[in-house]
Amino acid sequence: MEAKEFKTAIKSLKDQLTGKQINIHFVYGNDGKQYSFNSLNAFGKAILHFESIGATFGFSSVSNAVCARNTPKFSDFLTVLNRGNWNEITFLATTVK
């Protein structure tokens, strides 16, 4: 998903993301790194940084202390997010085309 589309989707979820740990798994070349954020402000700055280096974005998973659910599509993400009490949300950012 292109950055503009991803940012629009995230804006619509702002209230549901507040107070949760937000992770970004950043994949570049043959490597990857996980970033974690406890504030939407820090998460937003990271998205802008990844956008500036040409990253595309996706939805990965939501989890809590009991289970984790993969959410590769935005529609899956919305469905699962609204059906549970989640405290950790993971997104994907990649520069690999």
Rank of each mutant, 00 (worst) to 15 (best):
Y35M: 10
A55W: 00
K97V: 02
N85W: 02
D15E: 15
R69W: 07
Y35W: 01
N23F: 00
T95Y: 04
A65D: 13
M1R: 04
G19Q: 12
F77L: 01
T95C: 09
V66Y: 06
T56E: 12
A42R: 11
K97I: 02
T90S: 15
R83D: 13
F6Y: 06
A46D: 11
N23Q: 12
V66H: 08
H25C: 07
G44H: 03
F91W: 02
F77V: 01
G44A: 05
Y35T: 09
V27H: 10
I47N: 13
E88H: 10
E5T: 11
G29E: 15
E51W: 08
G29C: 08
K4R: 11
H25A: 11
K14S: 15
G44L: 01
G44R: 06
T90G: 13
D76P: 02
N70S: 10
R69M: 13
V80Q: 10
T79D: 14
S63P: 03
S61D: 14
S75Q: 09
D15I: 07
Y28T: 14
I53A: 07
N64C: 03
I10M: 13
I22S: 08
K45R: 07
G29Q: 15
V80P: 07
S61V: 02
L78Y: 00
S60A: 09
N87P: 04
I53G: 08
G58P: 06
A9F: 05
L48I: 04
R69Y: 09
T95F: 04
S75R: 06
T56C: 02
I22T: 06
N85L: 03
G54P: 05
F43W: 02
F37N: 14
N38Y: 10
S39I: 00
E51F: 03
I89T: 07
S12L: 06
T71K: 02
K97P: 05
Y35G: 08
P72D: 14
V27D: 14
F74A: 04
Y35F: 04
A68W: 05
V96G: 03
T94K: 07
S75D: 11
Q21R: 12
G58L: 01
